[in-house]
């Protein structure tokens, strides 16, 4: 394959999040969870639903500490299907040798964006007996990625050539205690090299507004594109699940009341409406550069949500045009 260009990345996905942010368009990203199995079509199908609707899609890294196809492979498959991938990489399962090696692999394969995070503890997953690695933390991993890309050096100090070219992303949870430290923590990730950040689900818009005010006060909004996390709650069972089983998700009482207040067969529609309204509210908050739609298992619903929120299927993400990894 030819070397990836700074805006291109994996073949067939010219544009992507980097282009959206460079053009100062309101960015849209979504999520693709790779399958538990070796079926490449599972990724392609999810990508096909999102293609054109999103600037890029995160490919999760053994999300929730459950074994899935590797995010690097999932990212390649998404790119082949015409969606610019954001390869997630967590500190949970790899030491600094493996992490840097995966970053080089991402660079070699033209993965245009990486999202570097701590990761859920193995105790939440399907292998609670696994060793929790956590050799680096997420700030250190972002720092290592920037060093690799901008200085062409490993943590050991040894040089690498050529350097990877990906955009570096991180995550933040505006709602997790200590809440007043969260903007500062995002600042640490920015100081380490994060250029975009996706947040945990926003159900509490005023709370998120306060977080963004703190982000702006620190002058961080001009240095990092903040993409607010959103997603539809489509059943009362799902509501209970995100409230009690997903670490770090906060659902305010009024949202709970609203979803419980409609007839059971209307919860899904109400959840989608709430999600659309949330996106509209988030767009109005200064410093919000985009939204990140997490609709676990409901990828087919993402286009409807985006359409109702006023977006069109006009985002880069053409089918691959031969050459490189996209030619599959």
């Amino acid at each position: 394959m030819t070397a990836p260009g700074p805006t291109g990345g994996a073949a067939g996905t010219a544009g992507g999040l980097r282009a959206a942010l460079a053009e100062r368009r309101f960015a849209v990203t979504a999520e693709i969870g790779p399958p538990r199995g070796a079926d490449p079509a599972a990724v392609a199908e999810k990508a096909a639903l999102l293609r054109g609707w999103v600037d890029a899609a995160n490919v999760t890294d053994n999300q929730g500490a459950h074994v899935r196809m590797a995010s690097l492979a999932g990212s390649l498959l998404a790119a082949r299907a015409g969606v610019a991938p954001v390869m997630q990489l967590t500190c949970r399962d790899r030491n600094r040798i493996a992490l840097q090696s995966d970053l080089l692999a991402a660079g070699a394969l033209g993965i245009p964006h990486v999202l570097l995070l701590t990761g859920d503890h193995p105790c939440f997953g399907d292998h609670p007996d696994a060793a929790p690695v956590f050799d680096l933390d997420s700030v250190q991993l972002v720092w290592a990625a920037r060093t690799l890309r901008d200085e062409g050096r490993l943590l050991s100090g040894r040089t690498v050539a050529p350097r990877p070219e990906f955009l570096i992303g991180a995550v933040e949870n505006p709602f997790a205690p200590p809440v007043r430290f969260r903007a500062a923590r995002l600042g640490k990730k920015i100081a380490a090299g994060a250029e975009f950040a996706q947040t945990q689900f926003v159900f509490d818009v005023p709370g998120f507004d306060r977080f963004m005010a703190a982000v702006r006060d620190r002058g961080l909004d001009g240095r990092c594109a903040v993409l607010a996390g959103v997603g539809p709650i489509r059943s009362l069972a799902a509501l209970e699940f995100v409230r009690t089983k997903v670490p770090g998700v906060y659902v305010p009482d009024e949202v709970v009341r609203r979803l419980r207040g409609v007839p059971r067969d209307r919860v899904a529609a109400e959840g989608v409406r709430l999600c659309v309204e949330t996106i509209e509210a988030l767009r109005a908050i200064p410093g919000v550069a985009g939204v990140h739609v997490m609709a676990f298992g409901y990828e087919r619903g993402v286009p409807e949500i985006l359409e109702r929120a006023g977006f069109r299927r006009d985002r880069a993400g053409r089918l691959p045009v031969g050459g490189g990894v996209g030619a599959g």
């Binding site: 500190c91 949970r92 701590t118 859920d120 503890h121 929790p132 956590f134 933390d137 997420s138 700030v139 250190q140 995550v171 933040e172 949870n173 709602f175 997790a176 205690p177 200590p178 430290f181 923590r185 640490k188 945990q200 670490p247 770090g248 906060y250």
Partner: peptide, 15 residues
């Protein structure tokens, strides 16, 4: 449990 040296993870409970 994650031996984080740069601050809390995003999973801290509301309490």
């Amino acid at each position: 449990p994650k031996q984080l040296r740069n601050g809390p993870c995003g999973g801290v409970s509301a309490n």
